[in-house]
């Protein structure tokens, strides 16, 4: 037993009879297998390193996210997938102890450029969080928040239109159209999360980041959000972090597997789940740790 190896939360050798996963504890290579790069990249990440104080959370990750695709990021907890996602619209800037190195481009423009302002960046790259976080305001105000803040509309009618359109796109309109001015916090968990999605798309971003958007929801609400993602992928580029392999398999076009802060493998989703190239991916897919 490697009780002092430091990785012992990751897997239990007792569950994997006949096969040892020693490589999981040995020095991992920073090289990614599969095809992380693409010609039609909406966002591309090159040599990304992220540190929390002195602890490195992301090791030299490079990856492209294609226009209008759904890119899923999976991996055991603590593998850095959420950290990676939050780097894509610089949400990590809000943490005092976080340091980011490397290059992330959006339409070939480095978002970590000194001159880049986070405000227009986040207007283009929206994010939906793990726990639904509607503002303690009315449903209408929640959705109208982004357009108002960014000054996207000048007339009330336009705003009404955007709110309705966004709620429809988030397939929430029919449920809330009669109570647009009641508090958003009064909705159910699944509705709240769809409200947050509506709030994000009201700004008309180009990319939507989703950080385990269904982990706080029940199966039925999860199913609705997954349907929604399929619809949204027509207009938006989506990057989703999930701890559920089934969800990744259902909603994504491509899947990236993260392990210990490294990007191990990127491939078409079907490929990853049927015939993974890397043995770590395979071990994870087959449920030997996670």
């Amino acid at each position: 037993m490697n009780s002092n190896s430091g990785y012992n939360g990751l897997f239990d050798p007792m569950l994997a009879p006949g096969r040892t996963l020693d490589f999981a504890q040995q020095g991992l290579s920073n090289k990614t297998v599969g095809n992380p790069f693409s010609e039609k990249a909406k966002m591309s990440v090159r040599n990304l390193n992220v540190y929390y104080d002195n602890k490195q959370a992301i090791h030299d990750v490079s990856l492209d996210i294609k226009r209008n695709e759904v890119m899923a990021m999976i991996g055991p907890s603590g593998c850095g997938k959420s950290t990676f996602l939050r780097c894509l619209n610089r949400m990590n800037d809000t943490l005092d102890n976080c340091r980011v190195e490397g290059e992330v481009t959006l339409d070939e423009h480095n978002i970590y450029d000194r001159k880049q302002d986070v405000v227009p960046l986040r207007a283009r790259v929206g994010i939906v969080f793990q726990k639904p976080n509607p503002f303690p305001k009315s449903i209408y105000e929640n959705v109208a928040y982004g357009p108002k803040v960014h000054g996207l509309v000048s007339r009330r009618a336009q705003l009404d239109e955007i709110v309705e359109d966004s709620l429809r796109k988030a397939s929430l309109w029919d449920e809330v159209k009669d109570r647009l001015f009641s508090p958003g916090t009064g909705l159910s968990g699944g509705q709240q999360q769809r409200l947050c999605i509506a709030r994000t798309i009201a700004v008309s971003p180009e990319v939507i980041l989703m950080d385990e958007p269904c982990s706080a929801l029940d199966p039925i609400a999860t199913a609705r959000i997954e349907e929604l993602m399929a619809e949204l992928s027509q207009n938006f580029t989506i990057a989703i972090v999930t701890h559920s392999m089934q969800q990744a398999a259902r909603v994504s076009n491509r899947t990236a597997y993260f392990h210990m802060g490294r990007l191990i493998e990127v491939n078409d989703t079907r490929r990853v789940f049927t015939n993974p190239e890397h043995e770590l991916t395979e071990a994870y897919i087959t449920g030997r740790f996670g």
Partner: peptide
Amino acid sequence: MSKAKSKVSIANNLNTIDLVQRNLAKR
């Protein structure tokens, strides 16, 4: 999704970033 709606959203899409940039200095 109806046709009219998607037109609105595409129109929005084109405008968003310009609108954001226009207000940016003030903000």
